[in-house]
Amino acid sequence: MQLLRKESGTVAAVTAAEHEQRQLRSLWLKLVFLALIGGALIALFLTINVTDWGFALPRRGRKVVAMLLVGFAVAYSSVMFQTITNNRILTPSIIGFDSMYMLIQTVIVYLFGGITLAMMSRELLFVINVGLMVLFASLLYRWLFRREGRNLYFLVLIGIIFGTLFGSFTSFMQRMIDPNDFTVLQDRMFASFNSVNEDLLLIASAAIVLVTLYSLRFLRSLDVVLLGRDQAINLGVAHANLVNRCMVVIAVLISVSTALVGPITFFGLLVANLAYQYMHTYRHAFVVPAASLISVIALVGGQLLVERVFTFSTSLSVIINFIGGIYFLYLLLRETRRD
């Protein structure tokens, strides 16, 4: 069979290579720009209005670390999820992932009772939680994806209802728990941006590092998945296998972010879409870092605003939900209109 290929350096091949180089350079520059802004905001956050350096710095430092972890976790999981579902309106949170985490946590508390848990280390509780999350996530959402002919909005609606179901059930279970048990564990369970669950920082970092290293191997295959299931398989990607692994990664990332700051429903949506718009590329190797940087900027910047400008009279998650909700509506309407 004759091969189809152009022989040695033609004009076309040369300019293509140049084009490639130029694009890469521009992508790196964009990332650097984001990193600089992020760095500046972090520096500001750490140093503004400090009275007692010995006290403020470590405390703020921990907060910054938490925001870095959460920012990365939400960004990465959202981009990955959007790729495997081939859609830019979805994120794991919209599908009810973070509500599921809260539910699992509450059920564990209900089953094991407060005393046992008070004696159990927080890290162990976290690990158990993550394990169950991974299990349920893989089962539940694989069932949803397998259905041929299930359309997208259907999935989203189901996800939202699941979110309400889990949320209601969680509140319900919380009332079923012995009030004594409940008080013991209350602060552990309700994390927020203003009260980050800082005990878990170490294990959260470990989880994120592990999961990221694991996923680096299939980052390029994810680029191909953007073309859709059929084309990905055509080009040699083991699609079903890959989606499974991604679900595991996503489950861990969402567990981390929910454990640290509670549910932030629409944040991933905003951040993933902004990253694609800003970077103008499909490559995950660039989109994921961009999304992470944008999310760190938003979190640190937002929290700065909340603390210094609004002086804690509002909550970051509320603002995010509001802006994100409107953006989601806009995307939804635009998608359906286009059809």
Binding site: R5, K6, E7, T10, A12, A16, A17, S221, D223, V224
Partner: peptide, 16 residues
């Protein structure tokens, strides 16, 4: 090439 395009790959792409 699993996403890492070589000069040879570029030639195939040009030809296609």
């Amino acid at each position: 090439s699993q996403g890492r395009l070589t000069k040879e790959d570029q030639q195939y792409i040009d030809a296609a």
